[in-house]
Every structure is written in structure tokens, then in C-alpha cells.
């Protein structure tokens, strides 16, 4: 970790929190990425599809404008089976649990939701176990 990373983390986190604060107060909705995207593709959110699509458009397109300034790198693995398996698990798991890092994590913890707190504790624990096993024991990633 570079020494100023925590500051960027805190500042970026604050922007995430501003977006997450604005969404319920202005639009009356919880800002959860898996719910907004999932509801759009599986049809359960068809009543609010314009709002979902607009949110996703902003989320995908607006960061591209900052690419020249921040020159971000994703460092995603090139191991195709790992990408596919991980994507399937993230998609299936977040829909089954009804939320991910934004909905259960940021939005849930900040209102002391039991479900948000429990989900966050579980996915961090499971993630830590898989991370340590996959990297240090199986040499997968």
C-alpha cells in the first residue's frame, strides 16, 4: 500500500456515501449495485427501469471521463475460468442474499440493519478464507 492510499480511500468513500445518501433522499431508493442491475436484467424492476438504466449509465459512462486524469488499472486476472467462476458466484450470491458491498455494506451498516451487518460479516469472512486458501494453499490467484 502506498502511504496516501488511505486518504484517497477515505475521500473516494465519502463520494460513494454522498451518492448513497442522495439516492434515498432524492429518489427514495436504496443505492445497491446488485439490486439495481439485477432487477433490470431479470425483469423484477420493470416498473422502475428508466431510473435503473439511468443510474447504470451514470455509473458506467461518467468514470470513463476521469480515465485520463486517474489512469486507473484494474489488474484483473487473465485466468478465464477464474473470471467466469467468480462472476457467476458474485451474480448468484448477491441476488440470493439481496445485496452486495453497496446495499448491505455501505447502506445497510450505516442504518444498523441486522441483515446488512450479518451479510457484510459473512462475505468478508468467506472472502478472506477463499483469498488465503486460493493464494497461499492452492496457488490459484
Amino acid at each position: 500500500m502506498i502511504e496516501t492510499d488511505w486518504l484517497w480511500g477515505l475521500g473516494g468513500g465519502f463520494l460513494i456515501g454522498l451518492a448513497g445518501a442522495m439516492f434515498p433522499l432524492v429518489n427514495g431508493r436504496v443505492m445497491g449495485a446488485s439490486g439495481i442491475f439485477g432487477g433490470l436484467i431479470d425483469g423484477t424492476g420493470r416498473d422502475t427501469w428508466t431510473e435503473r438504466l439511468a443510474f447504470l449509465a451514470g455509473l458506467v459512462v461518467i468514470p470513463v471521463g476521469l480515465v485520463p486524469v486517474l489512469s486507473p488499472e484494474t489488474h484483473l486476472t487473465e485466468n478465464l475460468p477464474v473470471i467466469l467462476a467468480a462472476g457467476l458466484m458474485v451474480g448468484f450470491g448477491t441476488r440470493l442474499a439481496n445485496g452486495c458491498t453497496s446495499g448491505h455494506g455501505v447502506c445497510g451498516i450505516s442504518r444498523l440493519s441486522l441483515r446488512g451487518l450479518a451479510a457484510t460479516a459473512i462475505y468478508i469472512l468467506a472472502g478472506g478464507l477463499v483469498m488465503v486458501s486460493a493464494r497461499h494453499f492452492w496457488g490459484l490467484i
Binding site: 449495485a33 446488485s34 442491475f37 484494474t74 489488474h75 484483473l76 486476472t77 477464474v82 473470471i83 467462476a85 467468480a86 462472476g87 457467476l88 458466484m89 458474485v90 451474480g91 448468484f92 450470491g93 448477491t94 441476488r95 440470493l96 442474499a97 439481496n98 452486495c100 458491498t101 453497496s102 448491505h104 441483515r115 450479518a118 451479510a119 457484510t120 459473512i122 462475505y123 468478508i124 469472512l125 468467506a126 472472502g127 478472506g128 478464507l129 477463499v130 483469498m131 486460493a134 490459484l140 490467484i141
Partner: peptide, 19 residues
């Protein structure tokens, strides 16, 4: 909630990406 979060955490770790 519980099994979904377990699966999500596992996939999150493997790729380092969430939704």
C-alpha cells in the same frame, strides 16, 4: 442471505470485483 453472502464473498475474493 447467509449462503448467498458466502458465495458472493468467495467470488469477490477470486476476482477482486463486486457488482
Amino acid at each position: 442471505l447467509i449462503w448467498g453472502s458466502v458465495l458472493f464473498g468467495a467470488g469477490w475474493a477470486l476476482a477482486g470485483l463486486c457488482p
